[in-house]
Amino acid sequence: MLGRVVRLSSLRRAVQVISAVVSNFYLKGFAQLGIYQGPAKYACVPFLNCYSCPGAWAACPVGAMQALLAAYKHQFSFYIAGLLTVVGGATGRLVCGWFCPFGLVQEILGRFSSRKLVIPRLLTRFKFIILALTLLLPVLLVGETGVSSPYFCKFICPAGTLEAGVPLGLGRPELRSVLGGLFSWKLAVMVFFLVASVFTFRPFCQTTCPLGAFYALFNRISLWRIEVNSDRCVSCGRCRAVCPLAIDVPDRPNGGDCIRCLECRDACPTGALAFTRAPVFPDAVVGGRETN
């Protein structure tokens, strides 16, 4: 009922801001250019938020998983995988749309241009390759010492560069003096995604984020999902028009690209769309309304 009273898009923006602030509220870290080292780092946030960000009080699931996979024992973390499975199984990519701070940054940059390019479907599949490499490379590409690297964090993650690399790398003189080619590469990747965010909606989330790819696997089968009431739908096309990811909502309401921003739900003039725990086809064969 809340959704019918409050525009979910406004609520979502508030939740995004609160999430970004709460997950990075260790202000002392920014002041001293250090990182939080307290017991809250036992916990993982379910979204991409670099644990080396001066403000971060919890661990990043991708960073922590990779760090464990890359360590000498190459240990897979059931703790992190379980957390992500619970979150994904419950709501799919809702976390991407509502809680991810880097998603918020991309969306804010997107406001500088009203014209948005649509990323080809094939390119959005790239994130699944990144997910596979994120999990496999730290185990397969091991150095002589038996230790590997968190390759996604090392070569790609623009959230890590923005949240940790820029403030710590440029802010601390002893780190700044040893920055080299790798930092330049990471900076270039970050700038690429930030600039691309102006012209297309959340390019990193659509094409590259391994966490988004993992949650995308759950979108169709998550407990809470978007339901289309076909009796109410008048095929006006507004849901398709407002969808920032250009998803054909009546056809694929729970496609892997959907980050559950629920703009479509707000735009629907007849209330045919709902984000709910209801069965897949509430009024179909089970409801018995359909008698042919």
Partner: peptide
């Protein structure tokens, strides 16, 4: 892992 600065991230 998380209480140490990740040099790769930087």
């Amino acid at each position: 892992k998380a209480v140490r600065i990740c040099l790769e991230c930087i």
